[in-house]
Amino acid sequence: MAAIMAGCRKYFAYPITPQNEIPEYMAAHMPEVGGVFLQAESELAAINMVYGAAAAGERAMTSTSGPGYSLMLEGISGIARAELPVVLVLVMRGGPGIGSLENAQLDYFSATKGGGHGGYRNIVLAASSVQELFDLTQLAFELADYYRVLVMLLVDGILGQIMEPIEIMPFSNGKTRSLPAKTWALTGTGRQRPQNIISTMLMREDETYQWHQRMAVKYQKIQAEEVRYDSYCLEDARIAVVAYGMTSRVAETAIDECREQGLPVGLIRPISLFPFPYQFISQYTHRIEGFLVTEVSMGQMVEDVRLAVNGRSEVSFVGRGGGLLSHQEITRGIRELWLKLATK
């Protein structure tokens, strides 16, 4: 719904649990706005249809889950090379291979570090509520158009399934950016302009080098301007839990519980996973003695937190490979870290 509000008129996807609510919604509602919903024969085809629609200048998106995402990586890599604005929703599920339908946060590495071949970056956003997912979906289209990049919404399995009330409002992030006209789009030359070419190749002499130089500048700009995060009870905290997505809400419950017992603990919640809020975390290392990273994985984002902390504070981890992390598990992790710091 947010995508349609954001002007998305082309949606291509292949059915996969746990995200079938999205194509089913699109199938019912795209026709109302004169848009296109198309069920592709595979995720390979779906992402390449998105490539085509984006190349033709449209706001296009797809959504998938683990196994479909692995297939889509070919197209995602191509979209990155061609610098096409695309929005992709990845609802994570459990394990490699077919894996399971359990809740998980196992695709952090793949989403934030590239995933496909060739050394590219996508903007990756993680919401912690249905309302925020609704807002970020609209932001994603804006960022995609502004930077000509793929923006991924990385969604925990349970966020894909939960129902919560939301306010349906056009998203505003305070700044209005003027989006560049899509003069590069394939719309036919009309014999008025030279041909436009959308290409995933870098075959000319020096082209690979030049492309990466240019992307480095773009990615640095994104890292400078698009970092997003949130915090909770951080003002007097000496321990910070770091969590993204729904896990951050489980952490909030654990923090409330620990605060009742007098433990000075707060939360740092990265919203943009690329660009990661390294600086925001590192500025607290003088005061926060311990960071507890918690994820529904065996530890992925924890590596970025370690980079941010850079040895100046203790970093510990609580996680599980899949399923639902309980706030009791996080509370236990906080207590253990507190004891460790006290005996140091």
Partner: peptide, 16 residues
């Protein structure tokens, strides 16, 4: 106007 496509995917790109 032209797009190149990944190996085999031209009909999907053309569809889009």
């Amino acid at each position: 106007d032209f797009a190149d496509s990944l190996h085999g995917r031209a009909p999907a790109v053309a569809t889009g």
